[in-house]
Design a protein around this nucleic acid. Structure first.
Lengths: 149, 149
DNA sequence: CCGCATAGTTCGTCACACGAATTATGGGCG
DNA sequence: CGCCCATAATTCGTGTGACGAACTATGCGG
């Protein structure tokens, strides 16, 4: 499936370019997207983004320093923290997310509407079958969908 | 197209894991894959991998230090170098490539053969329409296809 | 032979990712 | 209650990766 690998390369390029224009690194952009539906704990984020916990500490540090997220104490567990978007981060990620969606949606511009639907269906099933974390949700996939596990 | 973004995340994960098992970073693995059909100049590689030239110098340095590629003088142009696989690099990338293909091919395992064909066709057309460099070729896409521009 | 473009490298800086070691809290069990 | 272990997260050191700016050197057109 070279086409799969190469389309992935394509999406990465779009994501990187879009991030750049919003002053984000791709990793920080992805972190913000994951936090859109709700705050998350560090361990939870590590599992979703497939990062070692020590990697996450640094990523959250840098993103926090930029004023886009903040650590909050978890009322349930004194050891844990919850990472949440700041007002600024929420506003920024909304624009970033919209713009990125728009650009990704342009990629299959040469396909007919029916073909795009087919593609979306097939990829959606591939994603579901492989338990991909909710790193990037459809606009209408809300908090409920984000609870998938 | 969240499915597209998420499937990209999925492919990246597979690529990263596969690279790791062969003692490669994903970037070095990608470099080796690009060099499979033929040697390339630095500028050419920069365009294909979408990297700044200074980034490429470092990547080739590290990969060369690992004994996987080597710089050769370009007989046509004294300024230029050609980056080629070493014997060791060629052997390694062959195994890495096969294994990565195998794993990527497993991702749509829940689809029927016909659906996989459809998916390959649609993604292939998306890739073609967006001028994705030949960063990862089909096993039967040889040197001729690698000349695409 | 001048001037400009092209091919690569060097340098400094920051982001990222990881493992190992560390701190601190939670929870179970005797 | 107190011990022990699991879990949540951070710190630290190291190597990789990416970039822009500045630089060297060769090609090439007039």
């Amino acid at each position: 499936m070279a086409a799969l690998v190469r389309s992935s390369f394509l999406v990465d390029s779009v994501y990187a370019e879009s991030s750049r224009e919003y002053g984000l690194t791709p990793q920080q952009g992805q972190l913000l997207c994951v936090l859109m539906p709700q705050p998350r704990g560090m361990s939870e984020l590590g599992a979703m983004l497939r990062l070692a916990k020590s990697s996450l500490t640094g990523l959250v540090d840098r993103t926090e320093r930029n004023g886009l997220v903040q650590r909050e104490p978890d009322p349930r567990d004194t050891r844990a923290v919850r990472v949440a978007l700041t007002a600024h981060g929420a506003k920024l990620v909304e624009e970033f997310y919209d713009e990125t969606c728009r650009r990704v949606a342009e990629l299959p511009g040469n396909l007919s509407a029916a073909e795009r639907d087919t593609l979306a269906d097939l990829l959606g099933r591939v994603v579901l079958a492989n338990e991909v974390p909710a790193v990037f949700l459809e606009p209408d996939e809300g908090v409920s969908a984000a609870h998938e596990h």
